[in-house]
Design a binder for these strands. Structure first.
Lengths: 196, 196
DNA sequence: AGTGTTATGTTTAGGTCTAAATTTAGGTCT
DNA sequence: AGACCTAAATTTAGACCTAAACATAACACT
């Protein structure tokens, strides 16, 4: 049976509201105000992530690799970016990019080549050492054959909200994301712990 | 320098809107409607998760362990639950729970003991074999000393939204979460791929 | 009681990530 | 040119997770 393994229905019986209530009961005064947002945010991210992984496993790819390929594909011709640019667009560390690229290269989905001979590109940005990652034919095809499937699936999962609700939600998330990013760039943990 | 490593400012320069636009440009017809919700959802979950991890690393705990301890703490006296109950409340697989508990036990934060002699508990639920995980004094103290810190920090990160916006967002997320959970329980991938 | 079934837990293999250490190439300065 | 500097990329160690295989205790039924 499958339901032994999958926590698909997990936490269904433990609504987010109960968590805040439990803290209040156990530790009156606990600042629970964030729970109503942060917890469902995590749960939804997990559900969407797990679902995407399962959809992609049929195509023989993992979500991390497809993410890499998608960034390259979206960049448009010639479907090539430096490692540095990949890091900037991907929310993961440079080390993780290295590993992603190494895996994808091993599978023939991308190629890696020493970046252009520098010599200050047209602009003025002195690209030091750089590695250019480029989509191969196989990589390109893999994106083409899976992206619509993934995005269609995810759109389906959102149909529980009306179009208007979806717009509202998207707006709120956009605003919050921007603000949180700004905050984290400013005081990066500066005042959280002890005065030093 | 630290900013080499941390992708804290990551994707700041690549707004979510650009992703959908890029797909439209590269592959007209791609169903991009979900991107405005799913992508910021993931980014926010990652930002909050990374931030929590950093806050907790000062206290010498990892987020996964604190999550386990918190569930036990919130359950109230006697701060003990079976592995099965933990799995139900935690959104991760039974195997992962085993590992979390093993780690926490190794650090003296919880104890594990063979469950009660079954004998159909008061209700009618015939608890088969079960393992009871219980918070130790050290585990209890660790929760007490970190929870407020974590929750306060997260509430701070949300202050970019007005109280009303926060309520709206929480409502939408609650509705969506419930609906997505229901959908995943029904057709678990049933009609996604090829007809078989 | 004996046998099969099944709920429950644990282990293992493989994959991914972060943070920190390390390597390497391009630029700089004298 | 030679020594230094430093950005960029990679490697490594450790943590965590899933999926699947495995182990085992309780139950049910004859």
């Amino acid at each position: 049976m499958a339901s032994d393994q999958y926590p698909l229905d997990s936490a269904t019986d433990y609504p987010v509201a109960d968590i805040a209530a439990a803290w209040q009961r156990e530790r009156p005064g606990t600042p629970v105000s964030s729970i109503g947002i942060v917890t469902p945010l995590w749960r939804l991210a997990k559900l969407f992530g797990d679902d995407r992984r399962r959809v992609l496993s049929r195509a023989g790819v993992d979500a991390a690799t497809l993410d890499l390929l998608s960034v390259l594909r979206r960049a448009g011709e010639p479907y090539a970016l430096t490692t540095r640019e990949l890091t900037a667009r991907t929310m993961i560390t440079a080390g993780a990019i290295s590993q992603r690229v190494a895996r994808a290269e091993r599978e023939g989905l991308v190629t890696r080549s020493p970046g252009s001979a520098s010599r200050t590109t047209s602009g003025g940005e002195s690209r030091r050492r750089s590695v250019v990652v480029e989509l191969t034919k196989a990589g390109h095809e893999l994106v083409e054959s899976t992206v619509d499937q993934v995005l269609t699936r995810e759109a389906d999962l959102l149909t529980g909200l009306t179009a208007e609700q979806q717009n509202q939600l998207a707006d709120l998330l956009r605003v919050l994301l921007q603000d949180v990013q700004r905050r984290l760039n400013d005081h990066r943990l500066t005042q959280v712990g002890e005065p030093e």
